[in-house]
């Protein structure tokens, strides 16, 4: 099995450690991972701003880069959801459709495809899990509090395999952090207030770290935490699942 590693643009640029942890974690589990070096971005920032019609270049590039793999895995629920919902091609729609079916967010790939039951990971800290909306409500990585259905959570299932890790309960288990792509600057006041409230929930419950399956939410919350000179840190879930 060869996995194509899809690293979102802002992770590539700002959070290489989350990408390195994803690569190392998959390798540790015996997977052959390749990173197509010509990848850029899934196009979501443009599409969510109403400019989906400008994303064909990104789409074509994505298809060229990832068509050959058995699976495509990414440490971002949001970018994976964008590909799943919106990847199209004028000339090779069958390839686009194929990719939409074989692209996975990291934690769902671990639980659903690799069916991981144990991890060699140790992280002796109190951790709050932020449920990123696109991963949760879009990819259904975890049950949503609005629905009347059985609880489950793919990321929590994995975090529970990490030695020493203590999960903190939150008052609002799956409220949005307010990042929202361009929303975070277009609607700065509400975006920041949402972020502050999310962080307060984690801090009030004693979290030392906030983790998520989407780095973008964490980037936003980290910006606020650092402005508040908080000791609380953010860490992508891949870095915790790969921690030794």
């Amino acid at each position: 099995m060869t996995v194509g590693l899809f690293i979102p643009c802002y992770i590539d640029q700002f959070y290489p450690n989350a990408a390195i942890a994803t690569l190392n974690l998959l390798s540790k589990l015996g997977i052959t991972v390749k990173y197509p070096v010509n990848q850029t971005c899934c196009g979501q920032p443009m599409a969510n701003s109403g400019f989906e019609h400008l994303t064909q270049g990104c789409n074509d590039l994505f298809i060229d880069n990832f068509d050959e793999f058995d699976y495509i895995v990414s440490p971002s629920g949001s970018c994976v959801l964008h590909i799943k919902d919106h990847l199209h091609s004028a000339t090779a729609e069958d390839k686009a459709l194929g990719i939409r079916k074989k692209v996975y967010e990291l934690t769902e790939f671990l639980t659903d495809v690799l069916k991981v039951e144990k991890l060699e990971a140790r992280f002796p800290h109190k951790v709050g899990m932020h449920q990123s909306c696109h991963g949760q409500r879009g990819l259904m990585l975890a049950q949503m509090t609005e629905l009347v259905d059985k609880p489950y959570s793919k990321p929590l299932q994995l975090l529970k395999m990490v030695e020493g890790l203590e999960l903190v309960e939150l008052s609002r288990a799956d409220e949005c952090c307010g990042f929202g792509g361009t929303f975070c600057v277009a609607e700065e006041a509400v975006s920041v207030k949402m972020g502050k409230d999310r962080i307060a929930d984690h801090i009030n419950h004693g979290a030392e770290y906030i983790t998520a399956s989407d780095m973008s939410c964490l980037m936003h919350m980290e910006g606020i935490l650092r402005r508040q000179n908080s000791e609380v840190k953010v860490l992508h879930i891949a870095e915790i699942l790969n921690a030794e």
Partner: peptide
């Protein structure tokens, strides 16, 4: 970057540190 589009006054930075 997506989060700093239209950032004449850098709206990200008003209440958040840059990464």
């Amino acid at each position: 970057a997506p989060f700093t589009v239209n950032n004449k006054l850098n709206l990200w930075y008003q209440q958040r540190e840059m990464p």
